[in-house]
């Protein structure tokens, strides 16, 4: 039972208000990120200088295997280092793609042309 004098808002008004609140929240978050932009640039420049001085090549997100720690530096067979055609057993292997020029060859049962 509503209190006397209370006018229940229309459904469309409620919906518009909800969307407005979410949009304002989104705009606020983006605004905060933009305000942080200058600090981000400084941080990136510092990181870039360190990486250049040390000659770093890859992100240090997955340190479990050398081909996940340095995917750009790992040799082409390193994902199969435990044996030919051995399936990858590191969890990060499902996130890191093999080198881009890996796997051009294919298995065939046909006789090679001589």
């Amino acid at each position: 039972m509503n209190a006397p004098g209370f006018v229940r808002p229309r459904g469309s008004t409620l919906f518009a208000a909800t969307v407005a609140v979410l949009l304002v929240g989104g705009a606020g978050s983006i605004g905060l990120a933009l305000l942080r932009g200058a600090a981000d640039e400084t941080r990136r420049a510092e990181g870039r200088a360190t990486a250049a001085a040390l000659g770093l090549t890859d992100v240090a997100l997955f340190g479990e295997a050398r081909y996940t720690r340095h995917p750009s530096q790992a040799d082409l067979a390193s994902a199969f280092q435990d044996g030919p055609a051995v399936l990858d057993h590191f969890p990060a292997g499902s996130l890191v793609r093999p080198p881009h020029d890996f796997g051009r060859g294919s298995f065939t049962t046909e006789e090679p042309i001589r």
């Binding site: 990181g47 870039r48 990486a51 250049a52 090549t57 790992a74 040799d75 082409l76 280092q81």
Partner: peptide, 26 residues
Amino acid sequence: AVRREAAAILADAPEIVAQNMVMGRH
């Protein structure tokens, strides 16, 4: 975001890295 961050930080990575390879291994 990670891709962009990595690209920004690694913008000055070595121009060429030369690795010795023997039997498909480093």
